[in-house]
Amino acid sequence: MKKILILGLVALLLTGCSSNGSTGNEETKQIVNIYTRDSASGTREAFEKAIDLDVISNTAIEVASNGDMITKVKSDENAIGYVSLSTDLLNTGLKALNIEGVVPSVDTVLNDTYSMKRPFSYVTRAAGDYKSEELQQLVVAYLDYLNNSIEGALVVSAAGGIVDTSGKVAFSTLKGNHSILNQDNSHLTINTAGSTSVASTLQATLEAFSPMAGNFKFTMNQTGSSDGYKRVLGSEKDGVNQADIGFASRDFSDQEDVTSALNSGIYCIDAVVVIVNENSEVNDITLDTLNAIYAGTQTTLK
């Protein structure tokens, strides 16, 4: 009985195997494997919006984060995927593709020639909705540092974000507005939530600001852009995973009403970069081709 079962399985497998993939002929083109982020990701939304994609092909593999995308695309030589520009691609064996001739870089994003870009936005809890008055003042001070100081801008760009440094001032001039900075804040914890793409810039600024602000603690719980608004003003704002500042790697949607927040805005720009294996022959790609590939109508890279 068992033997019959096993024989049956083997037969199924053999038919399954042969219907999958090419037969080793050098001339048959390699099928491209598409990788995408999970549905809570702001990077995914920015990417799908930029290539005007309706429904993604069901052969796509979902990865959990920017880092996971790099790991998976790295080990699959027929892969195509997308990451944030702030991700460090050096030594990963991957290369970024030019979009219709434009090289993704800080300059092309700032002068608007590279089209796949998106803002890193933030939103806070409503005024008075914080665990304590001190925490609220600390959040205000942090956002002042992040948005208006040169030091903050430097940290963000060192971590890969794109900022326009004109109009920013030294933090020493802003310090005076925040009396919270003159005391020990090690009993306060800032909780953040939302996009995983903002993680490197967010962590760098929190780490740099902490010793300037009485050594407050912080907990980053980044799980995807749609959780950013939810956990400060939306359906989860009083739940298990509530946060003080929510981040998204896209603009906030119409359903995400930020008018009640204490503070909201954009702290830097980021771009979405299409990545492939560095040995691939393809160096440039058009938005239409990307749409065809991700919708499943085109199955090869070229």
Partner: peptide
């Protein structure tokens, strides 16, 4: 010497 406000 630490410049951070607080106990230290």
């Amino acid at each position: 010497k630490s410049l951070t406000v607080g106990d230290s």
